[in-house]
Design a protein around this nucleic acid. Structure first.
Length: 557
RNA sequence: GGUCCCGUGGUGCAGUUUGGAGUGCACGCCGGCCUGUCAAGCCGGAGGUCGCGGGUUCAAAUCCCGUCGGGACCGCCA
């Protein structure tokens, strides 16, 4: 039916007789015998010059046959890829008529209510931006598959209708026809299956896996999402980081054309200490400054704490009113701080001075040491939190994001590995049991393994062989080296207070499998939806990208 | 399960604080004019159960109660 796509026509095609098919995007009439029709397909738009367009309307589906010609002097449109040419001497064939669309199918659709766009998803998809998103996602998945294939990974499909597995979220369930009152669960992740693959000698597994979790939604969280899931045998952390880096780099290059290069690493402790987050956004500075020593001998009661840190908001004083400071203080308290100390850095007699409700409690020496430690300049605002190390970092990390985080499409792509996560998150005060930070199959760091026999202090100091991939402050994915030996696994279960019965009920088939010879193995999974969203600079990943064909589910729910 | 915000022609909004005729803006739509536009322009027109139900009032888009729908966040997502 057609010889060319609309968006592909260029000066090189001048003189060719072409047929193009698509939707009428916009028409501009200049009397009975001259009209411009912008014809749109998934590649873009091209201007067609027709003799009268009275019987053409928006979104009519047409086939236009004509001759490509250069646009007259002065009428070239540089904003359009096809802007140097137009299709003239047009014969127009209407293939389908159309009612006016309920919302504009151009950039202005971004302002339209999402429910309206979802109700007419097929119209939203016609938009150039949506086509770009859709195709970016496809290109990414294709590149990832090639990259995994090239590294010897085997794509394995794991079951969708399964017995409930013990991940943390609520299962989506499907009623069984043959056994009324019983249900299948839909997988929250293929975690246990991929470990079975390792026992089964698959060696290197991957899957573009759909995962479903019946939890309440958030702006960036959907019922179902897609993970690139992988696992490798006779491999450790370095092997996984390398393999994932190759796949992610291929994905990024497929969408953006830009190389990724080496992905820097931070230990979990350093990430928390410097950025107050286990998924630091390193597109901007404003790192946390430790000033505990400055106030080691302070008289100010609020600063008699194990850890005091500061965030410096350069030049922030002028634009920050008292209301804002009160608001930030409220937030800091909601985030878990006892309070938030702020200080305006001002010009005093013979040097800078600090303007703050608590300044009178601080000695001159403490004030000047604080200024020196933070590098504060006149016009800056300093924020301080004093608490235990963990809480101080956490609160200031959130404050740092609030004060300095750039928009989603600025600052480039800052990938980061965060390694050496703690093995245990906490020790339950009631039971004395440690709480695993990842999952109970996570391998402890080899050096730290002896600490398993220690007390709570030792346990909380233990590092694990778990790692996260972070992009611009988002946790893209996580993984770990798994415990493959029964004796060590038993020790961890004992520590966690997981009884033999419970372990058998929850993970029985995996533990059984491990009795027959489990290779050392390690793996990773990362969220495809968020990666695509970040690569195309889109704020809302899932609404625009993966709920393409089942948006009605959202409305039913 | 909880807190808060929003429902006004097809779309996006203003009007609600302080009740007074469905009042207004932009886009879209329909008709007319227009031979180089590209978010074309100019002129004219159509299009409304102000989410729904009840209450207060001489009078409700506006105030009160309830309800439905949508959104954000908390809990939750090992």
């Amino acid at each position: 039916m057609r010889t060319h796509y609309c968006g592909d026509l260029r000066s090189a095609d001048v003189g060719s007789e072409v047929s193009v098919c698509g939707w009428v995007s916009r028409r501009r009439e200049h009397g009975e015998h001259l009209a411009f029709v912008d014809l749109r397909d998934h590649t873009g738009v091209v201007q067609c010059v027709v003799d009268g367009a009275a019987d053409l309307r928006s979104e009519y589906v047409v086939r236009i046959t004509g001759t490509v010609r250069p646009r007259p002097e002065g009428t070239v449109n540089p904003a359009l890829a096809t802007g140097e040419v137009e299709v003239g001497d047009c014969q127009v064939e209407v293939l389908s008529v159309a009612e006016p669309p309920p919302f504009p199918l151009d950039d202005r659709a971004a302002d339209v209510d999402e429910t309206v766009r979802l109700r007419h998803r097929y119209l939203d998809l016609r938009r150039t931006e949506m086509q770009r998103n859709l195709r970016s996602r496809a290109a990414l998945l294709s590149a990832v598959r090639r990259a995994m294939d090239g590294q010897g990974f085997v794509e394995v499909e794991t079951p969708m209708l399964i017995a409930s597995t013990p991940e943390g979220a609520r299962d989506f369930v499907v009623p069984s026809r043959t056994r009324p009152g019983t249900f299948y669960a839909l997988p929250q992740s293929p975690q246990l299956f991929k470990q079975l693959c390792m026992v089964g000698g698959v060696d290197r597994y991957f899957q573009v896996a759909r995962c479903m979790r019946d939890e309440d939604l958030r702006a960036d969280r959907q019922f179902e999402f897609t993970q690139l899931d992988m696992e490798m045998s006779f491999a450790g952390q370095e092997d996984v980081l390398t393999a994932v880096t190759v796949a992610v780099a291929a994905a990024v290059e497929a969408v953006t054309g830009q190389p990724v290069g080496e992905i820097p690493r931070l230990t979990w402790h350093e990430a928390m200490d410097r950025f107050g987050s286990d998924k630091p956004d390193v597109r901007f500075g404003m790192e946390l400054v430790d000033v505990t020593e400055v106030f080691a001998a302070t008289e100010f009661n609020a600063f008699k704490a194990p850890c005091i840190k500061a965030v410096r908001h350069a030049g922030g004083s002028e634009g920050t009113g008292r209301n804002r400071l009160d608001d930030l203080t409220d937030r800091a308290k909601r985030w878990g701080a006892k309070g938030l100390v702020w200080m305006r850095v001002e010009q005093g007699e013979g040097g800078v001075s600090l303007n703050s409700p608590v300044a009178k409690f601080l000695s001159d020496g403490e004030q000047s040491a604080l200024v020196a430690a933070t590098g504060a300049q006149v016009g800056d605002l300093l924020y301080l939190v004093a608490d235990d190390w963990r809480r101080t970092c956490h609160v200031l990390g959130l404050l740092r994001l609030e004060l300095g985080r750039p928009p989603v499409d600025e600052g480039g792509l800052q990938f980061l590995w965060v390694v050496d996560f703690p093995l245990f998150e906490d020790v339950d005060e009631a039971t004395g049991r440690p709480v695993p930070a990842h999952h109970p199959f996570t391998m402890p760091n080899a050096e730290d393994a002896p600490l398993l026999d220690g007390g709570p202090e030792d346990l909380l100091r233990m590092r694990s062989q778990a790692y996260d991939l972070v992009l611009n402050g988002w946790e893209l994915g996580s993984g770990s080296v798994r415990i493959h030996r029964g004796d060590l696994q038993q020790k961890v279960f004992d520590l966690l207070g997981i009884s033999a019965e419970e372990a058998h009920a929850k993970f029985g088939f995996l533990l059984d499998a491990f009795r027959y010879g489990a290779p050392p193995h390690a793996g990773f999974a990362f969220g495809v939806d968020r990666l695509v969203a970040l690569l195309v600079g889109e704020e809302k990943s899932s609404l625009l990208l993966h709920h393409i064909l089942n948006s009605h589910l959202d409305q039913i729910s």
